[in-house]
């Protein structure tokens, strides 16, 4: 069974539908990029998968022992975080929060997991640093480490390279690719169609025409794909 199945999913807010009858499946180890113009419902789809908003109709079905709380999430930065006094350690550790339930403090296993993920992201030297003083790329690594504390199976990323310089962007893509190779399913919202085609195994294109399939099918179908590069 697929890890995540969307069946006849309709998405919207305040009763206004923005996406009709969405059907797609994601299997363990897939790398899906969600592309489409602004306002096409990319973020709303992601929020619905994360249960931050409820679907207008239709269903999201989790398979492969995946439960709602085992989804790792890399949100876009909020205004609040920009001057939030918090150390890298505190932030990464907070990724374990969802599993704690009502229990107040983190266990030894939680701390070990946080430490492991910090190492994995190559930011051990930043552990005690203050989050707001880090560069954009470093901040994304911190949030990625936090997301990894929340999941071992699937990661949802909302435009993870926005605002990063080309170097940091490239490093970020490499990191995500490595995580995917380690067996973590990736679902990523992206503006960057070229890189999406380069790294993803599947593409979901939202807009007037909805497309879902492997990236080679996508190139063949040529939905809103501009061969001269750049966004459509």
């Amino acid at each position: 069974m697929a890890q995540l199945t969307c069946r006849n999913l309709c998405i919207g807010y305040d009763g206004i539908e923005i996406l009709h009858n969405l059907n797609f499946e994601i299997n363990n180890g897939d790398y899906l990029c969600i592309v489409g113009e602004n306002g096409s419902g990319k973020s709303s789809l992601m929020k619905t998968i994360l249960n931050l908003q409820s679907p207008v109709s239709g269903k999201i079905i989790f398979g492969d022992d995946l439960t709602q709380n085992e989804i790792g999430y890399l949100p876009q930065q909020t205004l609040v975080q920009r001057d939030f006094p918090a150390s890298v350690w505190e932030i990464v550790l907070s990724g374990c929060q969802g599993r704690r339930g009502i229990l107040p403090f983190y266990s030894k296993e939680d701390k070990a997991l946080a430490k492991k993920n910090i190492e994995k992201m190559g930011i051990t030297h930043l552990t005690k640093r203050c989050y707001r003083e880090l560069s954009g790329g470093q901040q994304q690594r911190v949030l990625l480490a936090r997301a990894l504390c929340a999941t071992k199976k699937i990661l949802l990323l909302d435009e993870p390279v926005t605002g990063l310089d080309p170097n940091a962007t490239n490093e970020m893509y490499q990191l995500i690719k490595k995580l995917n190779k380690d067996g973590i399913t990736i679902i990523m919202i992206s503006h960057d169609i070229d890189s999406s085609l380069q790294y993803a195994s599947h593409i979901l294109h939202l807009g007037k025409k909805i497309f879902f399939g492997t990236n080679s099918d996508y190139i063949r179908a040529n939905v809103g794909f501009n061969p001269n590069g750049g966004e459509c």
Partner: peptide, 20 residues
């Protein structure tokens, strides 16, 4: 609830999505 308050304040969307 110190750790919970921290998570909810720093990133409410993430906290909610991961089951807090």
């Amino acid at each position: 609830f110190y750790n919970k308050f921290f998570s909810v304040t720093f990133d409410e969307a993430f906290a909610k999505a991961t089951g807090t």
